[in-house]
Design a protein around this nucleic acid. Structure first.
Lengths: 353, 353
DNA sequence: CTGAAAGCGCTTACAG
DNA sequence: CTGAAAGCGCTTACAG
């Protein structure tokens, strides 16, 4: 009985075909390893024939360069880490998609690290990213006034923050809450609304203050008064619904003709309450939300006009900035507030376009 | 003017402190590199004093092993790739969270690859994963009857599929749609409902057939007839709403006393329509959804009882299976249908627990 | 118990 | 134009 028969009997794990290396390519092409390397990387000078022959051989053999070996000598791993606190949430998701999409085109792969708001988990993930020699780090949060529990000091690689609190000495990209809110309210004013209320989330969020400011500013520029004060509660449908029920109690002359909501859930709850009591949206009262949580905003009856924070774009831009840093390009520190975009549907009463 | 002054003037990028390597640790501890390596990896035998001294030195110097160098010799990178078609969606998200959480504890990092349903992007990502020498791959989809546009043949590393179509020769984990549906309907029956309808998504989804089968099976076991046929439409609130409006037209004797919905959005639309027309949920009509899309189900009025596909668990289990494969443990091929879990809220009329 | 040497798969000066 | 050599940061037989 020879070795092969034996292998059949004892079910030896099939020997995975040894990966083809640059050494195999060189041998097959009849050149040295250095020449093969140069041909494959378009470096140095050689006759086009040699280069082509080597490339063809590599192709035929199914050669895939080993990125780890390459990283070891070039000191660039072409990987980055995405540290996020919001793995379940809808904020990091588009950021991650934008980031990953932009990176893959540049040959960079993204490690996903779920922090779960747990300092210990954060520490472990950070250490893993160092061991794996990532070229840089994106730290993504779910709100602009908190940062993930990470000790980023004395890190050997550049860091870019997204949708998270940051110091002036950091490099950070966040949505422009003030601008987004202002544009939404200006749009309502342009549509002829005059009594515009604001119903929004808890005071503890910096975004709440910024959006309220945008609301006030837009009204001020149009010489309109604020309709009451910005009303604050949870970021929930339940809160929106409760406010809606309260509005119904008021004599209609005391009611706003539009409400700018701090997020889509509040807007949805509000609209549902109004609809349930026969107040027509947008005819009697226009509503605008915030977040443009697509699947949600589009399903509201009527579909919700909402401010989109362009998070995918944010991820893309943050990634580009990080690669600039990695490449040695200087990036001015500071917190960049990136423009939001108003997505017009029907709840604001704009004519269909 | 010496070099330092010059550096100040021309703004040379601050030389990043050279990373401390095992060679630095060895020198500082007065041992050879091999001894340092063995001490740090708990290999070989040496006096505890030597081992401790080396470890202390490593600690003090802030030594972080270079995972790429290690991978090069051990042929294990301690990375895996997550290839997904659903970067924006809510299916892969919990899968990714469960996977990343389980992996980090075992020292494995996860690359996030967004396929975007684009074969070219898929190809690029797959190649990147090969170059980066991942130990294995998780392929996650958004439905159990389609697979991402990937050519997985002749891949040098193991692959595990999650929530995606797979061959019998693959290793795959999917939610048990039949079982989840059956449990939901059985629950309604146990609560005394007898006229249970089913409103669900498009015929083209395998999950639709499986869930309808579960509905039929639960009714059959209780000797109850199906209430009409499984009604199929979009996976949307709008469809649920339309069905709700139709139900209202029917004389109440011809109405179901419960509706099992194929997803939460349909359930939500249905409930909203019923509520708008004065039919009380759950008193007049009980509703159960599918997906347990938390933020959505909990906000429905009344909060929605729904089937949870345990996707986080699915991600965790798939990761564990993949690591088994990587470690050489044999894993039986086949498609595993993992149990779903009914999350009881108020829309089904169960007593508060 | 400890260390010198070879090697993982590449790239990059440097000779020829 | 091409190749031999050194080296990236580790681990692992193998000597001593």
């Amino acid at each position: 009985m020879d070795a092969e028969d034996l292998a059949d009997l004892i079910d030896v794990p099939e020997p995975i075909a040894a990966r083809v290396t640059i050494r195999d390519v060189a041998r097959e092409a009849g050149v040295s390893i250095s020449t093969a390397s140069k041909a494959l990387n378009d470096q140095g000078r050689m006759t086009p024939e040699t280069r082509d022959r080597i490339r063809t051989v590599a192709q035929t053999l199914g050669f895939t360069p080993n990125a780890m070996a390459r990283a070891l000598v070039s000191q660039r791993s072409f990987t980055i880490g995405l540290l996020t606190n919001d793995t379940y949430g809808r904020f990091t998701l588009p950021v991650a998609a934008g980031l990953a999409g932009a990176m893959v085109d540049r040959g960079v792969s993204v490690f996903l690290c779920a922090l779960e708001d747990d300092p210990e988990r954060a520490r472990i993930n950070l250490r893993a990213m160092q061991e794996k020699c990532v070229d840089g780090l994106i730290v993504a949060g779910k709100r602009i006034d908190r940062r993930p529990p990470l000790d980023l000091a004395r890190l050997p690689m550049p860091v870019v923050h997204v949708n998270s609190a940051a110091a002036e000495s950091d490099i950070a990209f966040v949505p422009d809450d003030f601008g987004g809110a202002k544009a939404a309210v200006a749009h309502l004013i342009a549509l002829g609304r005059r009594r515009i209320a604001h119903v929004t989330g808890p005071d503890s969020f910096a975004a709440v203050a910024l959006r309220a400011e945008g609301w006030r500013d837009a009204l001020g520029e149009a010489d309109l008064p604020c309709f009451g004060v910005a009303e604050r509660g949870d970021w929930s449908e339940a809160f929106g619904f409760a406010v809606g029920c309260r509005l119904i109690m008021a004599p209609s002359a005391d009611r706003p003709d539009a409400v700018f909501c701090g997020n889509d859930q509040i807007a949805r709850g509000l609209i549902d309450a109004l609809t349930l009591h026969g107040i027509r949206v947008p005819d009697d009262l226009a509503v605008v939300g915030y977040d443009n949580w697509e699947i949600f905003a589009a399903a509201t009856r009527p579909p919700l006009t909402s401010v989109d924070m362009a998070l995918t774009e944010l991820g893309r831009i943050a990634g580009a900035a990080l690669l600039d840093l990695v490449g040695g390009t200087r990036v001015e520190p500071g917190i960049r507030r990136m423009p939001c975009r108003l997505v017009v549907r029907q709840s604001c009463g704009a004519p269909a376009n």
